[in-house]
Design a protein around this nucleic acid. Structure first.
Length: 220
DNA sequence: ATATCGATTATCT
DNA sequence: GATAATCGATATG
C-alpha cells in the first residue's frame, strides 16, 4: 500500500550547518539546489518521513530589495528574517497559501531564500493527503510540490507551526539535508509572481526538471 | 496549449 | 481600504 520511494542512493542524509546559511542569499539559493527538504512526523504512533529535492528557489536580498518582505524593516510578521541564519520564515498570502523561506546572512541582515518547487522523494502518499488530492497518475505528480504554496501544503507547513523553526536541526522535525546529489547544471532566471524588482535574475532552477513551478519561463 | 479570474485574510498605508 | 513572493477552475484556441 505504502509507496516508498528510494531517497538518494547510497549515503545517509546529513543536515547542513548554520554556516551554510550565513552567506549571501544568492549563494545560499544556488547551493540549495539539489539539497533535500525533510519533515519527520509521527502519525498515529508511526514515524513518517517526507523528503523532497529542492529544484527551484528564489533569493530575496533584505531591506534593500523592493520585492522582499524585509523591505519595510523589522516587523512582527517578518522578524525571523532579521534573526540568525538557518531559520524558517513562513508567511500567509492571498488569504489561502503559506510559503516557506530560510533566513540567510547574519543577525540584522534580512536576506532569505524562498522555496518554490521540490521533487518528491519519499512519503508521496502523505504529501497527497496533505494536499487533499488522491495520489495521482505519474503525469500529475508535479502537482504535489511544484509551487511555493503547493509544497508548503504538501509538507503541512503553517505559520503557527513552523515560523522560526531551526532548519539546521533534525530534532526540529523540519530540516534541510545533503545526500550527495550534485546538480549537473544550474540556470538563473528572473523571479516569478512579483511586481517590484521583477527583472532581477534571482530565481535558480535545475533546468529541465519536471517539477519546476513554471517549466516554460526560463529566459536564460 | 495559454489566458483570465475569483477566492480569502494578514499586513501595511 | 488596498494589496499580495498563489492556486485552481473555467474559458478559449
Amino acid at each position: 500500500m505504502d509507496m516508498q520511494e528510494t531517497p538518494a542512493r547510497g549515503t545517509a542524509i546529513r543536515p547542513l550547518d548554520r554556516s551554510f546559511f550565513g552567506r549571501s542569499p544568492r549563494r545560499v539559493a544556488r547551493d540549495l539546489l539539489g539539497k533535500v527538504l525533510i519533515r519527520d512526523v509521527k502519525i498515529r504512533d508511526v514515524e513518517v518521513r517526507l523528503a523532497a529535492r529542492i529544484v527551484e528557489v528564489e533569493a530575496y536580498l533584505g531591506t534593500k530589495d523592493p520585492a522582499a518582505h524585509a523591505t519595510a524593516g523589522n516587523t512582527a510578521r517578518n522578524s525571523v528574517l532579521f534573526g540568525p541564519p538557518g531559520f524558517a520564515y513562513v508567511y500567509f498570502i492571498y488569504g489561502n497559501h503559506y510559503c516557506l523561506n530560510v533566513s540567510c546572512e547574519r543577525e540584522g541582515q534580512a536576506g532569505s531564500v524562498l522555496f518554490r518547487a521540490l521533487e518528491p522523494l519519499q512519503g508521496l502518499e502523505q504529501m497527497a493527503r496533505s494536499r487533499g488530492i488522491p495520489l495521482p497518475a505519474a503525469r500529475h505528480l508535479s502537482r504535489l510540490t511544484s509551487g511555493p504554496g503547493r509544497l508548503a501544503q504538501a509538507f503541512a507547513i503553517t505559520r503557527s507551526r513552523d515560523n522560526g523553526r531551526d532548519l539546521t536541526s533534525p530534532a526540529s522535525g523540519l530540516w534541510i539535508g545533503e545526500d550527495g546529489f550534485r546538480a549537473r547544471s544550474i540556470q538563473v532566471t528572473p523571479r516569478i509572481g512579483i511586481t517590484k524588482a521583477a527583472e532581477q535574475r534571482l530565481r535558480f532552477i535545475l533546468p529541465g526538471n519536471s517539477f519546476l513551478s513554471h517549466p516554460r519561463i526560463l529566459r536564460p
